[in-house]
Design a protein around this nucleic acid. Structure first.
Lengths: 214, 214
DNA sequence: CGTGCATGTTACTTGCGGTAACACCAGTCT
DNA sequence: AGACTGGTGTTACCGCAAGTAACATGCACG
């Protein structure tokens, strides 16, 4: 039977693929996203064409690599998001989970956040924005779904939830990126400040000098 | 005297520099951020080494190019931010200004948002995050300053303002990027949804099914 | 045993960033 | 006038990374 054979081969191929991904992981975490295919192949103890046979091109390899980390991070976030607690607590837990992750492994974070690796010479027409990293999009969609199924937002709620999902993720990302670079405060303070923002403190704050209406 | 002479030369050099930047602008807007130095030189009617004499390396050229657009956009945003109107109106005007800009010229937007061009072979150690585009950082700082000088946030207000500045900018950016790709609603609706988020509607919304406390 | 077929290699092409070396054309100093 | 200086421009090259033949090898199946 050739099914068993195919299964064996497939298993072996999958194992090989995992090994290659782990080698790539080590190199990317050491050298950054601009690690060369040669370097990755060398780390894996093989040569370039094998990488290309497994992953098509550099983008394919990086996509596979990103998927692993993205899935892992999304799992943690889902856990924080689905916890049985007050809304504010859940929000803070989710923010903290994300920030703890990027704090613990900034290199992984940086790798995940590169848009599309500059767009290979292949060049696909340059149609619209599409700058955001896949991770951001996925987090945004995930959060949107949670918001929509948990909150009662009235008519147009679905669309509102999606806007908010992507918006909140962007807020978290940008604030986290800035925080990681400057470290102006503790993680807990950052979480609290962001939650305060989402809780409307911006709207509630008093004006400082002149009245708001000119 | 050599001052007049130097002035003449400097003027001529500056004019040349502007011409080169405009040529680079055309190419980058046509081919995207991966436009080659050869292509830019050709568009300007000259050859590569001249570009390198003027801008040092590709990063230098791109930085100069980005500065022009960034300054222009920041000017528009400042105008919306400083308008004599209610806070909510100012916020909406600022959001709308940004979104209108990226809607009108998505290629400029995409160019401005690339982190650091992938990091040249020079490789600078890969220390921390630093993923964000300079534009995002500058917008964040700018907004933080406006928030801090306009709002009374009590003790720790300065730090809070900075967190919020970067957070809000990130929210705007991510939501705008997603919106630009999917166009799920009109610009006005998007602006309204984001402003609602900042105005605490997330905290105020009712739960949908089970109670919040488990 | 030969026939597939996956795995591995070396050696190459193409294209880009960046540079060295040389050529031209103004004014300036003696 | 003629050497000196400094900016503008060129051609031709280096190094390096992505990606691709084309060839070699081990292993199952008929």
């Amino acid at each position: 039977m050739d099914t068993t054979q195919r299964t064996d081969q497939q298993r072996s191929a999958d194992r090989r693929r995992r090994e290659l991904l782990e080698a790539a992981d080590r190199v990317v975490l050491r050298d950054g996203p601009q690690a060369s295919m040669n370097a990755i192949a060398a780390e894996a103890g093989i040569t370039k064409p094998i990488l290309y046979r497994h992953f098509g091109d550099k983008g394919g390899l990086y996509a596979a690599l990103a998927k692993r980390h993205t899935d892992a991070l999304l799992d943690s976030l889902r856990a924080a998001l689905d916890a049985p607690a007050e809304r504010r607590e859940r929000v803070e837990a989710t923010l903290d989970t994300y920030l703890a992750a990027i704090e613990a492994r900034p290199q992984v974070y940086r790798f995940l956040m590169h848009p599309a690796e500059g767009g290979q010479p292949g060049d696909q027409g340059f149609d619209v924005g599409k700058h955001s990293a896949p991770l951001l999009r996925r987090m945004g969609e995930e959060l949107a779904q949670v918001i929509e199924e948990r909150l009662d937002l009235g008519p147009g709620g679905q669309q509102l939830a999606r806007v908010w999902g992507h918006g909140i993720v962007g807020m978290m990302h940008a604030a986290g990126d800035w925080w990681l670079g400057e470290r102006p405060c503790s993680r807990a303070e950052l979480v609290r400040s962001l939650a305060d923002l989402l809780w409307g403190r911006l709207a509630a704050a008093g004006d400082r000098v002149g009245g708001p209406g000119f």
